[in-house]
Design a protein around this nucleic acid. Sequence first.
DNA 1: GAATTAATTGAACGTTCGTTTTATTAACTG
DNA 2: CAGTTAATAAAACGAACGTTCAATTAATTC
Lengths: 218, 218
Amino acid sequence: MARTTGSDGEKTRSAIDAAAKRLIARIGYEAMSMRQLAEEVGVQSAAFYRYYPNKQELLFSVMRDHMDRLLGAWKQESGKASGVRERFAAFIRFHIQYHVERRDDVHIANMELRSLSVDNLATIVNLRSTYESSLRDILDDGVATREFDIADIALTTRAIIAMTTGVNVWFRADDRLTASEVAENYVELGLRLVGAKKIETIEAGGRNVSVGPKIRSF
Amino acid sequence: MARTTGSDGEKTRSAIDAAAKRLIARIGYEAMSMRQLAEEVGVQSAAFYRYYPNKQELLFSVMRDHMDRLLGAWKQESGKASGVRERFAAFIRFHIQYHVERRDDVHIANMELRSLSVDNLATIVNLRSTYESSLRDILDDGVATREFDIADIALTTRAIIAMTTGVNVWFRADDRLTASEVAENYVELGLRLVGAKKIETIEAGGRNVSVGPKIRSF
DNA sequence: GAATTAATTGAACGTTCGTTTTATTAACTG
DNA sequence: CAGTTAATAAAACGAACGTTCAATTAATTC
C-alpha cells in the first residue's frame, strides 16, 4: 500500500495535532509512543515525519501555538475593560474561561515544560512570563491608584496565577458550578487578595465623581 | 564480580530512594531509565530488583511514603494551635514550610499522578483528599463561628491549596524572601481569602473577652 | 494521458527499555 | 571454619522505542 484514496496533508496534520494533544494530556509526552499516536490518527508512524521532523518538535509546536493563541486572545480581550478593578476582573474571567475551555492545551503547557529541549524551554518560559506580567501590570496600576492594597506585588501575582490556574485540577463541566460561576467566585477571591477597596461613584452632571475609596465590607 | 565489599542492603535501599527522588523530580518518572537510576546509585540495574519488584512500585512507594509523612507531620503540628484563625494560619505556615523543605517529594506527588497504576492512583488520591479536608474543616469551623466569611467553602479550600502549593513553582532558597517570610505573606493572603475578621481580645480579670468581630482593615 | 508531485505504507535500522537468570563473592551464623 | 544467607555483577531476554528508507499509489499539472 501507499498513498490512500482521499488522503490530504492538511487533514492529516490537524488530525495529528488533535490526537497528540489528547494523548500527551492524558498520558504524558514521554509515555506517548509514536506508534500509539499514529494508531490514534489512523496512519502508520512513518507518516508523521512528513509533518514534523521529530517528536520534540511536535511538543514544542503544541506548546508554542497554545501560548501564541493565549497571548493573542488576552490582547484582544484586555482592550475592552477600563479601570483597574474591571481590568483585574477581566483578567481573571478570561484566564479561567480560556483555561477551562482548553484543558488539554493548558495541561500540556503546565506539565510538559521539563520535556522541552533547553532552547525550546527558554522560548516557552519567555511567553509565559509575558502573559503573567500582564497581570502584574494591573496590580501595579491598582497599587498606584490606591485601589489595591498589596504587601508584595510579585508574590501576589504568582498567588493569583497559581490559584486561578488550579481550577483545571478539579473543574468538571458537569459540576454544580458552571465555568462562569466559578470565574465570578474567583473574581471575588481575587479582589480580596489584592485588598480591593470599593469605589462608589455617583452620577453628577454627567461626570463620574469618586467618593471612595472605602473599606470593602465582607 | 558479585557481592561487593562493604555492601549493605539498608544503605543501598536508601541510596536508591534518594537517587530515585532526585531523578524523577528532575526528569520525570517515564523519562528515568532503570540503568540511569542504577548508575546514579553506583550499582547495576539488576540490583534494584532486590529492593523493589518493579519500577511502578518504586514510584508508588515514594509517593505513598511522602503522603504518610505529610499527614503525620500535620497531625502533630495541628494539635498545637487553638482558635480558628490560629489553626488556619498554622496550616498555611506548615504547608508552605513543609513543601519548600521537600521540593522533590512534593514535585513528584504533584506531577506523577498520571504515571501511577489505577489502584495506586486511588490510594494516593485518597491520602491527598484526607490532607485537603483538614483545611476544609478549618474553613467550616471559621464559617460556623462567623470568624470567616466565605461564599463557597469547597472552592475556597481548593483556591488556597493551589495558591500555597504553587509557591514551589517559583520559590528559590536564595531569593529575597526566606521560606518563613513567604509563609507569613501567604498567611495574610489566606486570611483575606477567607474574609477573616479581626477579633480584638482584652484581658479582663484573667479571662479573654472578645469584643469583635470587627471588619478587617486593609 | 504522460509526467510530476503529494501522501502514505511496510519493513527495517540500531538502540534502549524493564526485567530475569545465573553465577559469584561478602558477610554472617553456629 | 564450614554452612548459610545477603548482596551484587554480568549477561541476556524479548519487546518497544524514535526514526529512516524504499516502494507504491493518489492527485495534480501541463
